[in-house]
Amino acid sequence: MVDAATSRLEGLRGGAIDPGTATVVLFLLGAAIFLLIGCLQSKNFAQLTIEGLALGSVYGSLALALVLVYRATHVINFAQGELAMLTTYIAYELMLKGLSYWTAFAATLAIAFVLGTVLQVTIIRPVQHRSVIATVIVTVGLFILIDGIVNWIWGGDFKFMKSPFGNGSFEVGGVKILHLYVGMVIVVFASVVLVWALFRFTKLGLGMRAAALRPAAASLVGVRVDSMLAIGWGLAALLGAVAGLMAEPTQIFLSPGLMQPILVYAFAAAVLGGLESPAGALIGGLLIGVALTLIAGYKPHIGPITITSELQLPFSFVVLLVVLLIKPSGLFGRREVRRV
């Protein structure tokens, strides 16, 4: 991430401003100014923006999970959301057994990591060398399988879960901010920073990046590529578990459908940010989150159509479509630097 940023910076210093990069910078700057002015003008707007950022961080962390798997195997894991939902049920079960919220939280992350790793080894590895399509279909199957298993064990009815941050709130300049929203953002960003640091600063992380970029060359320097892919799935499942656990308190109940809309938002976020870019996934998540909350809050009119919260899912599909049509590499998609 940092490398891409520095090389882009060097490009700017060299006077060669690539028009694509300039458009992206202008777009992000415009979005930031729009939000800032809106927040200063209206308390309602500010409140919605804060809620949007909190929800967006959840979309971003699930999008990041998708990106991690995509970078390593060039496969979209359609089961990523259901896996997150399953781990949220596991946390629910642990809390029923008497564990405190944060003990259950930590245990769930560990279980999610192991689960992701085991799934990669047992279900994905046998097909991953066949074809991308085969692997994608296996992840779709996994989606259905997990959904069925959760309904079988816990039933489809709603469950109550403990709240991690209570129902408290505080006020800044007349704007009411829920503890929950601040907590969500902090937890998501802490876990993202930890995963990023693992990739950036550890030998294991370097091996994982090498395995994802060039598996053949990585194995020649002694990297166990298959193990790296399994660990990558584990980390993705862990980030997904964070997303599930932080998404749950924004719903009133826990239900098997918890992550299904969120997976769609995460897809849109990942594509918007550029499927290859971890930073892009996060920023894409925040943008989608804020856009969806503002739409649901203000119900804007386009001609005779009033856009309400029922149109949130179609809206994210429109984002997906527009990005794929106009800039398929997304906001932060890498352009390969290669000289022969």
Binding site: G207, R214, A216, A217, V221, G222, V223, R334, V337
Partner: peptide, 26 residues
């Protein structure tokens, strides 16, 4: 055994330093 394959097998996306560190991976 270190194998430098045809076409070099350098990690173009990583820094020179990270490439060298990968050499010491084992």
């Amino acid at each position: 055994v270190a194998h430098v394959p045809e076409g070099r097998g350098t990690f173009a996306e990583l820094t020179v330093w990270e490439n060298l560190k990968l050499g010491a991976y084992t």
